[in-house]
Design a protein around this nucleic acid. Sequence first.
DNA 1: CAAAGGCTATCGATCGATCGATCGAACGTC
DNA 2: GACGTTCGATCGATCGATCGATAGCCTTTG
Lengths: 213, 213
Amino acid sequence: MAVTSRERVRAAAVKLFASKGFHGTGIRDLAQEAELSSASLYHYMGTKEDLLAEIMHTALNRLLDAAREATAGSADPVHRLRTLVALHVLAHAVGPAETRVVDNEVDILSPAAREPVVALRDAYEHLWAAAIEEGVAAGVFHTEHPAVTRLALLEMCSGVARWYSRRGPLALDQLAEHYADLVSRALGCTSAPGVADLRRCREIVAKEWGMSV
Amino acid sequence: MAVTSRERVRAAAVKLFASKGFHGTGIRDLAQEAELSSASLYHYMGTKEDLLAEIMHTALNRLLDAAREATAGSADPVHRLRTLVALHVLAHAVGPAETRVVDNEVDILSPAAREPVVALRDAYEHLWAAAIEEGVAAGVFHTEHPAVTRLALLEMCSGVARWYSRRGPLALDQLAEHYADLVSRALGCTSAPGVADLRRCREIVAKEWGMSV
DNA sequence: CAAAGGCTATCGATCGATCGATCGAACGTC
DNA sequence: GACGTTCGATCGATCGATCGATAGCCTTTG
């Protein structure tokens, strides 16, 4: 069997949670989308909330791993931040559904289930914070409030998942580069773009998110 | 009576829809928050969806009116965009709940109810688009993809509602100015900041959103 | 007393979740 | 190689709880 039932349940949950929200998606909706009975669903998941938490867990782990791999051995903070931006944008453009679930439904989780998810998100954001702060310390970035700037730029990049369409006029590479430029300029970065290693980001995204890039 | 039941129902809906989502908020939750019985709610609203649509309608109309008033008679695209940014950020910082409802729950509405809401949002975004395009045409803004840039910057500014706290270290004025600077720089604007008329924005927000600024 | 505001009680529908039962493929055993 | 056994996968039926919404009766107020 090429596609297992377990994978169909996961895919159905990502799709429906993203488009109708967690509370807007019923057990029966999931069953229909996964081509199973509602009873059979429970062979592959715990509670509905467990399913949501697991989706967030794997999605964030994937993003965190990809970011670490993409920036490994990169000492220059400008290059590192541009790489983080390109990867973030690519991931959000390639897998918008997964991303919207993670971004929009976090505080639906019970505190016990939310805590490890938030920890993963914090670990990821720390990569951004470190790059920005190093750049400021090195004098290549200029911002009065690095923490605020980081949040603003992260929101900007995450927004891609809310509007980008691969059927639109903008190719993935252009999109990623455009965002890297926006971020560089917002940080008052005068040095040459030092173009992020887009090819490497694309390969990592292709590897982690499947062949869809 | 200082606070009418009708106002309490509205406030309860904004608060709960923002924090738990539309589908995550039950009629009984609304009733408890508004200090009414669930039956009495229906004296002040149609269906639950009507209530949601009405909240979006008034919130977007308020934002659109405020933006038009703030930019009226402003010919310089740089100054106009900075004003739009400052107003947007102030509004999202002062009324994050309302804003999150508008931003996150739009596609829960039935098509018939969604259409006028989307029209309002489009009218608002057009103010941004016009300022950006005029600036590009005048050579004071520099961006390869104005439409993409507009979406990116809008997402960045709307993100304020997802993290800003007035109990944090950053005052409203600093926040608004910081975002105006981020936007100016992202657009490659070299001219002096031409600082947006913050006082005027604050007054408009205070008038439209109540005395909370 | 009429209207407005508010309540209790209740409706049918749907919710998330669980039940016992069935199917077919794999597996050992003689 | 035929046969009982086991087990993962799936099902229809149904559970108690909760959903959004309504009907009808009090109470306050002008």
